[in-house]
Design a protein around this nucleic acid. Structure first.
Lengths: 356, 356
DNA sequence: TAAGTAGGTGTGTACGCACACGAAATTTGA
DNA sequence: TCAAATTTCGTGTGCGTACACACCTACTTA
């Protein structure tokens, strides 16, 4: 391994000078700079990240603004875990992360959580920008204080965030379209179960719906697509005659697509004997969804690997702060197709981490 | 962040003593040890991996024995890249990896490459144990020299390798069964295209076939499964009348499964107008396979993420050497389902690395 | 012309933290 | 009381970073 000292010796300068050249910190004559650069290249010198990190230790503070989770709304648990894991890893780099949570249905709690967050004067912020209006104010504050921020899971185009880490929802919808197309024939019909004005990220869900329809349109399939709307996710179960009657009336419906993460609720609502004949496609690997996948009721789940999203957010921000590594504007999460046969090989990192 | 010094100060001992307690290196009185341990626990002390690595620098040597790749046999390129990436990352930890390649069809080149490898007296070895007899001799040598080794991509049960990193082939076959089942109806028939005594890991391919058949048997599907054998992968294309005639004779064949990584060859052999009606399932995301996926000829590819396998091998071995972290006996790679709609979101790390 | 100054260029070194070895201090046993 | 054994301490090491300071040249001013 070649060290700065080796380079310095060869160039007849001190280690400090090599360091200045490496970081373009100025104060080096063009002649010396060229000489050093030449040797750096010849020897293929790479900064030792370990030593660099140790030396750079500066105690950065991160802050994360993310919805809380409970039994009913477990979706946010995965990103939480990923963030936890990432935080653990970067601790050694002198980076401390604080999580501030809010109620995903309450804009006030969002604003309030941010007020708490900003008191800690973090060096960078990870945001799940659920509420548009409040987010604009938040971004304004961050901009004034020159605090870089990153969007997690939900994107807000037009703002100059450091980067967006999340799923491409439209493309996820296209994939759902493809899968529904594959697991039905042309004569079959497909039912899409919607929840009006969904809980939080209704934009993402809208994008999925559009992607789904886009696929069916572009592929010239003659498959008829029905839509069934509910006002509340729990209404699907409460008034389950609605969906069961619909299926009885439309015996050609063989595929069901649920663009939200609540496919488990839909499965619960549909009569068991009807489930057998249906191919059901949903999103997100919540424990409830996985349950119905295991039973064979759900055929495909499209996962956005939210654990990885959380994890990656921390790592990305950390690399930005410590190594000034500027991330690409958008880091799309893989669209993982999960079935009963492969779910146990997915999310192994998440499981491993949860057990510990 | 709590440092060893903090602990030492609080316990009224020196940093050295704390270090001895941390690593159970002995030479500490029971009393002091308990006192230090108590404070370690209270303060939830975690070793700073960065500083630890820097201090531990020991210059380990790794060696990797893996088949070479070329245009015809590009399968091994991905693990190569993953290994390269991993090697880069661990270089800072004073770990140097050397790759020794061999011809995957020639046992002698395998043995010869190993003889070269062992001359470098590595501290650990990554093996792709293609040839049984030669591998047994290799393992014997490694055991005598007490060099730990890890199997990559191909497993050899019964040997006491540190760990196996690769796909569960039987389960991959089951998944292929499920996918073929989903994208055909009960009246359809499925064709499996085999290559007799496949190139290298015919065991893995045999497992896939068995998994595939197992799924169809257990699911009580009445779908008829045909098998078509070729002696050489290139024979599929050379004598392509064989496969085309077969499809003409069996118009009910709607699904094609290729358990090797050569689904592209099969696609090339089948007449274009016939391809339209077929749902084709293959394994591994070689560039050729991806081409046919993009065109829409291949419906599903089951990926074993061989880039990640290579990468993980290095990281696992490195953690074992540096941090004495003993890996679990088997690290299965996710069974990724790749379609035209999601392939661009997969393997992003591999692509990112290849570009650089 | 000598003294003074500013700017550019380069050096030396403390620091971050854990690790490990030689040396010192203390205890034990004879 | 002395030697041996046990316990503990002090310090150099790994490598890059960044700051204080030293040095040199060129130019200004008395």
């Amino acid at each position: 391994m070649i060290t700065i000292k080796d380079i310095a010796k060869e160039a007849n300068v001190s280690a400090g000078t090599v360091d200045r050249v490496l970081h373009n910190r100025g104060g080096v004559s063009t002649e010396t700079e060229q000489k050093v650069n030449k040797i750096l290249k010849e020897r293929n010198f790479k900064i030792n990240l370990i030593a660099s990190s140790l030396a750079m230790k500066k105690n950065h503070t991160l802050a994360t603004l993310i919805p809380n989770f409970d039994q009913q709304n477990i979706f946010w648990k995965s990103p939480h875990s990923g963030i936890e894991k990432g935080s653990q890893e970067v601790k050694a780099y002198g980076i401390e992360n604080h999580i501030f949570t809010f109620n995903q249905f309450d804009p006030n709690s969002y604003a309030k959580a941010f007020r708490e967050l900003i008191k800690t004067s973090p060096d960078a912020v990870i945001l799940v920008p659920i509420f548009l209006k409040e987010t604009k104010a938040i971004i304004e504050t961050l901009k004034n204080k020159k605090i870089p921020y990153l969007f997690l899971n939900i994107n807000l185009k037009g703002s100059d965030s450091l980067c967006y880490i999340g799923q491409k929802s439209f493309e996820a919808g296209i994939l759902a379209g493809k899968l529904s197309n594959i697991c039905t024939t042309e004569d079959d019909e497909i039912l899409m179960v919607l929840t009006r004005k969904n809980l939080f990220n209704h934009e993402a869900i809208q994008d999925r719906i559009e992607g789904f329809l886009d696929f069916h349109q572009k592929s010239n399939s003659k498959t008829k697509i029905h839509k069934l709307q509910f006002n509340q996710p729990d209404e699907v179960f409460r008034s389950r005659e609605k969906i069961n009657q619909f299926i009885e009336k439309h015996p050609k419906v063989k595929g069901v697509v649920v663009p939200s993460s609540r496919v488990s609720v839909v499965c619960k609502a549909i009569d068991k004997e009807k489930l057998v004949d249906l191919r059901i496609i949903g999103f997100d690997t919540t424990p409830q969804n996985i349950d119905f996948l295991k039973r064979g009721d759900v055929t495909f789940l499209i996962s956005q690997k939210s654990f990885n999203q959380g994890y990656k957010s921390i790592i990305t921000i950390a690399n930005f702060l410590v190594h000034k590594e500027i991330p690409s504007n958008e880091i799309p999460t893989p669209l993982e197709i999960i079935t009963k046969e492969n779910y146990m090989f997915s999310h192994s990192e998440e499981r491993k981490y949860s057990i510990e």
